[in-house]
């Protein structure tokens, strides 16, 4: 479906496929086209500069709960402009982060996921203070479950299902670790679900099927889902880590959870740590402190609900609702990984 949008009486071309402004009737109105709009998305503050309602309005719809009126001292500034360049690009869209060009795109359907991508890259590169892991994070009983993984491992899909099953959402992309407290702060961005998981998510979130899909480069088509649409809930802050499970999708129906030694977990966390290069040796102390307080597992994901069942059973066994998990209760792996030494 395609609808037309105008700004100041001037036709700016077709709107994003599938985006219907009428469906946004219950939303607070997006701020005016000329003013930058500020959003505090958990620990990350974003300022969007765009005069184009095709991007400004759906972005505002996703993040309206995080909208803040005035400017703040530190924010990731994202600007979306129309540009006309020499061929082969021709007419297109330019996304700048803090004044630097990050993406040039031809299609409007590609803009919103690339805005999200640009924000994530800026967070990884510039967000001060936090040690950052590439991970999905949800919380329950006052503790966080961290799902660290490389892209395409199913973090976002698993995170979405856990939210719908009663977990609170912190992020589907970043675990932001406060080095002073070793607790996690949220970055509750819209969940980015790839096309391969559309059917899975539709099964537990019927409204997701009506959402527009966008083009995200080589990652294919994606949907951006407001986590509150999965289940209304509060976003927790300052959550200690209770459990770490490294997900890996295995094409078989039965999922499996294998205990992981904490040194091995630390080693694997370093591989998905965005800030290891920035904080160097201090990273070992911070992540070492995190794993020493957590139950650590390797997760072979399978059917989504069966995977969640396995995770929640382990959670109940290892992360008591009151008090910290007792390291003495954590199961050690029966077989050490051979050959016993692994470099990264």
């Amino acid at each position: 479906m395609s609808t037309a949008s105008t700004i100041g009486g001037r036709d700016v071309g077709p709107a994003l496929d599938g985006y219907n402004p009428a469906r946004r009737a219950s939303c607070p109105a997006a701020p005016g086209p000329e003013s930058p709009t500020y959003y505090r998305i958990g620990a990350v503050t974003v300022c969007l500069h765009s005069a184009d309602a095709r991007f400004r309005e759906p972005f505002h719809h996703l993040y309206q709960r995080h909208y803040i009126g005035g400017p703040t001292l530190s924010a990731v500034h994202i600007r979306v402009d129309r540009v006309i360049r020499a061929r082969p690009l021709g007419r297109g869209f330019r996304i700048c982060v803090d004044g630097e060009e990050r993406f040039l795109l031809r299609k409007p359907q590609a803009v919103l996921p690339h805005v999200e991508w640009a924000i994530n890259a800026a967070v990884a590169a510039t967000l001060p203070r936090y040690h950052q892991l590439h991970a999905g994070v949800v919380a329950r009983d006052g503790f966080a479950l961290v799902l660290p993984a490389q892209p395409q491992c199913g973090k976002s899909t698993l995170t979405a299902r856990l939210i719908s099953r009663g977990w609170s959402y912190l992020s589907d992309e970043f675990a932001l670790i406060d080095p002073d407290t070793l607790r996690l702060d949220p970055y509750p961005k819209a969940l980015c679900i790839k096309e391969g998981s559309f059917e899975i998510v539709d099964a537990f979130c019927p409204t997701a099927g009506a959402l527009p899909s966008y083009e995200k480069s080589w990652k294919g088509r994606v949907r951006l889902i407001d986590p509150q649409a999965l289940r209304p809930h509060r976003t927790p802050w300052g959550v200690p880590v209770g459990m770490i499970a490294f997900p890996r999708y295995v094409a078989r129906p039965a999922p499996a959870l294998h205990p992981l030694s904490r040194a091995r977990a630390l080693f694997q966390l370093l591989d998905v740590c965005f800030t290891f290069g920035r904080y160097r040796a201090a990273t070992l102390d911070v992540l070492g402190g995190v794993v020493e307080r957590a139950a650590c597992f390797q997760l072979e994901s399978g059917e989504i609900d069966a995977t969640c069942d396995v995770l929640e059973a382990a959670w109940r066994a290892h992360v008591p609702a009151s008090g910290r998990p007792d390291p003495a209760d954590l199961t050690r792996p029966e077989e050490p990984v051979r050959p016993g030494v692994e470099a990264a």
Partner: peptide, 21 residues
């Protein structure tokens, strides 16, 4: 960085890590 009876070794110069079971 020792944890239990295992360790992770870090070489800051080369920025490389080694897992030691």
């Amino acid at each position: 960085h020792r944890i239990d009876d295992e360790a992770v070794a870090y070489d800051p110069g080369a920025h490389e890590v080694l897992y030691l079971d």
